[in-house]
Every structure is written in structure tokens, then in C-alpha cells.
Nucleic acid binder design. Structure first.
Lengths: 116, 116
DNA sequence: AACGTGTTCAACCACATGGTTGACAACGAT
DNA sequence: ATCGTTGTCAACCATGTGGTTGAACACGTT
């Protein structure tokens, strides 16, 4: 479940255009047309991109007259950072352990108290 | 430059299998065969996945006899967290500002979408 | 030298994705 | 009621991606 959502989130952010839209949505909500304006593609293409972002839980679309303001759901970021931090930490721990091993292997080391 | 690399990193991590490999590589380096073992796919497929991870800068492959131990390059994580944190912060600032505005507006007023 | 192991390369297939255009639905304005 | 605007849906096309199998390369072993 989370596994799948994480995949969608990463996939959604793998596109520069979508990342740019997220960046702009971080500043303020925007309609589909507003979002499409800066790019040289059809509005339909942007609508598709928004669908991807929405399926990933990164944005939500509400209804206001005939326009649909898009809103960034920043909560999903936590999902990513949690995943990243976990393995970053694991890798760092590992480096630390490796350093310890290397210190211990130091042949010229004096017989002081060993690192615990 | 970073733009493109970021795309590759996100795309690389959009695949559950590749994320799983990263998770395992966070614990220890591994050869292609070791990495392929748990999955029900060909070694060639894993080799391709590793190429994707390598192009994203997430892993490096060295040479040791005829095997090529794969090593996690945890530094790339920083790239992601930096991107994420930036917009998360921006979005949070924005919420804070919005809250301030709402407070300032007497609660008698209806919540109307403010044009920028 | 010959063989087996570990890994990659090449060609191929199925499917997903990003783009297009055209039609349609929903709503505001005239 | 009709028209223009906003946005989505559907069909289509080109390209990318993950999988396969078969061949080749590199290295250790016999």
C-alpha cells in the first residue's frame, strides 16, 4: 500500500515539468490554465500531468465554478523523506562501523583502549 | 544539470524493485548475482536496473575479479531531501501566512478564493 | 588450453507514458 | 437560449521501459 504510493510519488516527481508545477503550487494554488500557461504544450497534457500528481496524492483538485483550483498536498513529502532518511541513516551507520573496523585494523596502532 | 539528475534519481526510485535493492545495499555491498537472488527475474534484468541506479548516481560498480560489487552512493539522497525540504518549507510558510490572513479576517466573512 | 562462472550486450516484445487533436460537459455571461 | 471559457475524456501516435532469450566478454579454475 505504502509501497505502491511511494512508487507513484517518485514517478510523479521524476518529470521536470511536474516538479516545476509542484514548485509553483507550493507558492499558491492555481487553475489548470494558469499552470499550463508557461509551457508550450496543450492544456490537455497539463491535465494529464495533474492526474498523475493527484493519483500520487501530491495535489488535490477542488471545484469553483468552472475552474478547478489545484492545491498542493505537502503531507506526502513526509512519506518520501521518511523513506530516504531511513536508508541514509542505515548507510551512515554502516560507514561508521566501517570506520571503526578500519581503525581497529590499523597495524601501527598503539595498544590504547580499543574503540567500543 | 541538477534538474536532469534529479529526474533520473526520482525515476530510479519509482520502481519498488530498485528501491528494495537500494535498501539492501544500504546494509552492505553486493554483487549482481546476490542482488538478483531474491527476485524471480533474470540476472540481465537486474543488471539493467543497476544501470538505471548507476546513471542516477545512486550506486557505483567497481571491479573485483569477474564480479562487480555494487556500492550505494548515499550522497545523492541529499539532492532529493534538499529539493523536497525546499518546497515543503515553502508550502508551510504559505500555510502560516494563510492562517494569519484568516485570523485577520473577521470570522463573519465567508471563505472566498482570493485571486492573487 | 578448455571450461565454468559472473556480467553485460543485442534484439525483441508488451505495455506504460507524454504528446497530439477532436468532441463533449459544465458553468458564466450575453 | 446561445456563446465562450475551462477542463476532461477518448482515440491515436511515438517513444521509453521492464521483461525475455541468446550470444559474447572477462576472469578464475582445472
Amino acid at each position: 500500500m505504502t509501497e505502491d504510493e511511494l512508487s507513484r510519488v517518485f514517478a510523479a516527481l521524476a518529470d521536470p515539468r511536474r516538479r516545476d508545477m509542484v514548485a509553483r503550487l507550493a507558492i499558491r494554488d492555481a487553475t489548470v490554465n494558469e499552470l499550463a500557461a508557461p509551457y508550450d504544450v496543450s492544456v490537455q497534457a497539463i491535465s494529464k500531468h495533474l492526474r498523475v500528481l493527484e493519483d500520487a496524492g501530491l495535489v488535490s483538485r477542488s471545484k469553483d465554478g468552472q475552474r478547478r483550483p489545484v492545491h498542493l498536498e505537502a503531507g506526502v513529502f513526509d512519506l518520501m523523506t521518511k523513506w530516504i532518511e531511513r536508508y541514509r541513516r542505515e548507510a551512515e551507520d554502516r560507514f561508521r562501523r566501517l570506520d571503526a573496523v578500519l581503525e581497529q585494523m590499523e597495524p601501527a596502532a598503539e595498544r590504547r583502549g580499543a574503540a567500543s
